[in-house]
Structures are given as C-alpha cells and as structure tokens.
C-alpha cells in the first residue's frame, strides 16, 4: 500500500489481485471497494483480469442457473406447502 500526493492510500497490483474475488462478490467495505476501483481505473492489466473474472463468473451463472423445475415436482411441492398449517 502506498500513498499518493494527497496522502490517500493506493493499493498495488498484488493487493488488487488479492482483493479481486471479494470485489466481484461485492463483499468489500465501501472504502476498500473505492481503493480497488481507483486502481482498476489506472491499471490496464488488473482491469483486464477483473473483466475476465467478472465475465467468467457471469458465464457460469448463465449456464448453470435454471428457473425450471419438473412440473410434477412443482405440483408436489405446491400441494405440500399449501397443506402446511392446516
């Protein structure tokens, strides 16, 4: 971690790579996220890495997430939950 001319802390590439997963998972604190974004605006390699990881993550979700369940199972579960509390 270094400081810029205004005395604000700046993170280096090593720290940016370390924080990347939590940044993409939206788990960083606001301050930490802001530091990360400043670094990504200035570092082309880290920006490319972040963009790749973001797209890979989106691709995994697109491919593996489904909103569909078998109709018979849907009906079975509907009957089950509607019978609760009776």
């Amino acid at each position: 971690m270094t400081r810029n001319r205004r005395g604000r802390e700046q993170i280096d590439c090593e720290e940016a790579v370390r924080r990347l997963a939590e940044y993409l998972d939206r788990e960083l604190s606001q301050a930490s996220r802001a530091e990360m974004e400043v670094h990504l605006q200035r570092c082309r390699d880290c920006f490319s890495r972040a963009e790749f990881e973001r797209r890979l993550k989106a691709r995994i979700r697109e491919n593996l997430h489904t909103d569909q369940v078998p109709q018979a199972f849907h009906e079975r579960m509907k009957t089950l939950v509607e019978g609760l509390g009776e």
Partner: peptide, 22 residues
Amino acid sequence: EMDRSAEWFQEEVMELLPDLLG
C-alpha cells in the same frame, strides 16, 4: 398468525424452489 406464517413460508419456498432443487 399461523396463517400469515404459512402464507409467507409458501411464497418463500416456491420462489426458492429452482435454487433448492439445483
């Protein structure tokens, strides 16, 4: 209160059903 809980529970479960099965 039981009715309200059951209604809330039903909605939550049916919304989560694809995620639960996956």
